[in-house]
């Protein structure tokens, strides 16, 4: 499974009138992994996902999902994928359990519906019809509908948008269990922490193109270096500290008594700094490590905040 890809897109283009939503996008998604498609609103995330799902016919480029053409071989593809739309998808007069049972009936080997209802806390919906459910309950129902048919590949379009922290963690935990059991998951998000928390791979999309991709660690390493800060007495011998550090590091006293070390901040570097302090009788107050986040990577790549 490891080397297979579940989605292969090359040079994908999708226009709506004069607006180009997806502009020559290349994407490869590994089987058995959780892949986050990250980008600001309007970057082309949903159009990309909906092209994979067979809703949109690309204007140019090639796309294969589980080796199939999502439009022309839709009948073969649909039973194998699970789809969570960004919103809606349920009869306004249907109860949550009723709709989930219905979707289960469309599949040959569905999950145990009662267990899934309990797991996602949908039993609290009772006899309430969809239109009167809270936004969070509606989101969790849509998630349940995406997984109930035991698909190989699940598409989740902003699965935690508008969820409270507890419901968000419940969703994350389900995504982790899907991955553990060998389901490939593709999700879109504009939450950096969600991508860092969940994703094996991240594809950053801006203006309809993939502008960076890799594991969260790779992406964070690739950008600006990480930083270590501490305070001590003013006027420490920075040149001596620098000599103790690995060659790719830098050290500076920013304001009297405030020091910054940048470079590959790993446990070794931290130990080097603290032992240098010990040798010089310095108590490194407020020592802190600032990890470079996907948020920073995104900002550097696009010059834009993710959530503007």
């Amino acid at each position: 499974m490891g080397n297979e890809s579940v989605v292969q897109a090359v040079g994908l283009v999708k226009r709506y009138g004069t607006k180009t939503a997806v502009d020559g996008l290349d994407l490869e998604v590994r089987a058995g992994a959780v892949t986050a498609v990250l980008g600001p609103n309007g970057a082309g995330k949903t159009t990309t996902i909906e092209t994979c799902e067979g809703y949109r016919r690309p204007d140019a480029g090639e796309i294969r999902v589980l080796g199939l053409d999502p439009v022309r071989q839709a009948a073969a593809l649909r039973p194998r994928i699970g789809v969570m739309l960004q919103s809606g998808g349920v009869y306004s007069g249907a109860r949550a359990d009723e709709m989930l049972r219905h979707v289960a009936k469309l599949h040959a080997h569905p999950l145990d519906v009662d267990a899934l209802i309990e797991r996602l806390g949908l039993d609290s919906c009772g006899r309430t019809t969809y239109r009167r459910l809270s936004g969070g309950q509606q989101q969790r129902l849509a998630l349940a509908m995406a997984v109930v048919g035991r698909p190989e590949l699940v598409f989740l379009d902003e699965p935690t948008a508008g969820l409270d922290p507890q419901a968000r963690r419940a969703t994350w935990s389900l995504v982790r269990d899907l991955r553990r059991d060998g389901v490939s998951v593709i999700l879109t998000t504009h939450h950096m922490d969600e991508a860092e928390e969940l994703a094996d791979d991240v594809a950053i999309i801006d203006a309809g193109k993939v502008i960076a991709r890799g594991t969260p660690e790779e992406l964070c390493r690739g950008g600006a270096e990480n930083t270590l800060r501490f305070t001590g007495r003013p006027g420490l011998d920075v040149a001596s500290l620098l000599k103790a550090l690995p060659p790719d590091s830098a050290a500076a006293e920013l304001t009297p008594g405030a020091y910054r070390v940048s470079g590959t901040v790993d446990p070794q570097l931290l130990a080097t700094v603290t032992s240098w302090c010990a040798q010089h009788g310095v108590m490194p107050d407020r020592i802190s490590v600032e990890r470079h986040t996907l948020e920073d990577v995104f900002l550097e790549l696009t010059g834009k905040e993710l959530r503007g």
């Binding site: 649909r78 039973p79 194998r80 009936k105 469309l106 599949h107 040959a108 080997h109 999950l111 267990a115 797991r119 997984v147 048919g149 035991r150 698909p151 190989e152 269990d177 899907l178 553990r180 059991d181 060998g182 389901v183």
Partner: peptide
């Protein structure tokens, strides 16, 4: 839920 609960077993109903 125990491991393997979500193991893929896709298919359309008749």
């Amino acid at each position: 839920m125990i491991a393997g609960t979500y193991a893929p077993k896709p298919g359309a109903a008749p």
